[in-house]
């Protein structure tokens, strides 16, 4: 559980940063004249928290293979999209503007998710390179 918590925290901070960027881009494109109060600063934190929750409960007692992990991540992405759409658009009438906004949010979430995965992959690749170098040194010592 500790690893999952650390992982969720790491994802949370990356997601919050990327949601800020997504809000800037989407807001500028869809509603450039929209004014916000200070509560706007809380939205990335709330969305970041909501999107990090599924990761906490999607662990497995068995070590998953890479294809299984990809399937699990896709399920997690669908859960995140559903959670965000319910929070942001739940109870609103379904009209053209709502559908357009929901579609934009969905695309943004997918882009953010892919970017988060990419950043984590790059960080893990750097760590793996360092571990391989340490492994080679270890093998020379033994």
């Amino acid at each position: 559980m500790k690893e999952r918590l650390v992982d969720a925290l790491r994802s949370f901070f990356i997601i919050v940063t990327l949601i800020n960027v997504a809000m800037l881009v989407l807001g500028g494109a869809l509603m450039p004249d929209q004014k916000f109060g200070y509560e706007a600063f809380a939205y990335p934190l709330i969305y970041g928290a909501v999107t990090s929750i599924p990761g906490l409960f999607m662990g497995s007692s068995k070590e998953l293979s890479i294809p299984q992990t990809i399937v699990r991540d896709i399920i997690q992405l669908l859960l995140i999209i559903t959670a965000l759409l319910v929070i942001m658009f739940g109870g609103r009438p379904v009209d053209r503007d709502t559908v357009l906004s929901a579609a934009s949010v969905t695309v943004s979430v997918i882009i953010v998710f892919i970017l988060v995965s990419l950043i984590r992959w790059i960080l893990d690749s750097k760590a793996a390179e360092k571990m391989t170098a340490d492994l080679e040194a270890y093998q020379r010592r033994s």
């Binding site: 070590e63 992990t69 893990d124 033994s142």
Partner: peptide, 24 residues
């Protein structure tokens, strides 16, 4: 290296990332 595996480090040729903070 996991709950169910012990590996001989002398037989490992490289370490790669394996998604979600895991390695391979």
């Amino acid at each position: 290296i996991s709950k169910s595996v012990i590996v001989n480090l002398m037989k490992v040729s490289a370490i790669k990332p394996a998604l979600n903070g895991r390695f391979m």
